[in-house]
Design a binder for these strands. Structure first.
Lengths: 132, 132
DNA sequence: TTCCATGCAAACGTTTTGCATTTCG
DNA sequence: CGAAATGCAAAACGTTTGCATGGAA
């Protein structure tokens, strides 16, 4: 296992990620972390986030060409609004394990137990979308 | 509903998409379509693919910052290999409808019935990954 | 004749990288 | 000390867009 150094910047990035609501982008984290560390560079944010993802402390998800990061502790799934890009969480229990078993049998893959990404329309967008 | 013109380029893009195996990227489609239409531009490929997605003839999915397109007829789900990026299909039946109901109740979203994106490890990557 | 579609090249936003320097261990 | 992390700026990447021209309806 590769060792990683315990720098202020790394801790700051993780702190910001945890402090931000929802599923922040690298730019969100950058903006937040800069309030306390004005010299911390965007490149460092990316490098820190990658390190965190690699050690499994943080989840990365892609929505519309942007990476979003999730410091989430509890296993859960993601529902993404196809209309506005909003991302919400759903509890892991909402997707029973046997279903993943089905999919593994059908696909031959060994599937991750959590974050599965669903798409749909969020409550705020449902009404406007219905008018189409 | 917006009308769209029936140009050679559009047909060529759709033909290439359907001719290519798997879930080609815009660049893949571009490469293939260029064999028959050397002057067709990448911008046109993108515009044609967007048009097709909008009319619902084609599905778009994002894997690692790249859009992949799926001319798929049959409703199905996608399993993405976290290690190598491979994408495979799983039949829609592998994910029972009541499960989506659960998730809708839990999240408040109205979810799409298909392509749900799962991540995991594909058969080719399973063995190497186990050695870690 | 209208106006949507095309080709080209330039622009865009996100993410990565090269390199000299700093800092952790 | 040696290795890894940083800051900065430049580059890379996939994708989108402005504009003049071309072609379907």
């Amino acid at each position: 296992m590769k060792r990683t150094r315990n720098t202020v910047q790394r801790r700051a990035v993780l702190d910001s990620l945890l402090a931000l609501p929802g599923h922040p982008t690298a730019a969100d984290v950058f903006g937040h972390v800069r309030e306390s560390y004005p010299n911390l560079s965007l490149a460092t944010v990316y490098r820190a986030l990658h390190a965190l993802v690699e050690q499994g402390a943080v989840l990365e998800m892609r929505v519309e060409n942007v990476s979003r990061y999730d410091g989430g502790q509890t296993p859960h799934h993601h529902v993404v609004c196809r209309a506005c890009g909003a991302v919400a969480d759903a509890p892991a229990e909402a997707l029973p394990t046997p279903v993943l078993g089905n999919l593994e049998r059908a696909s031959g893959f060994v599937l991750d137990r959590h974050p599965v990404q669903f798409t749909g329309i969020c409550p705020q967008c449902v009404e406007p979308a219905a008018r189409e």
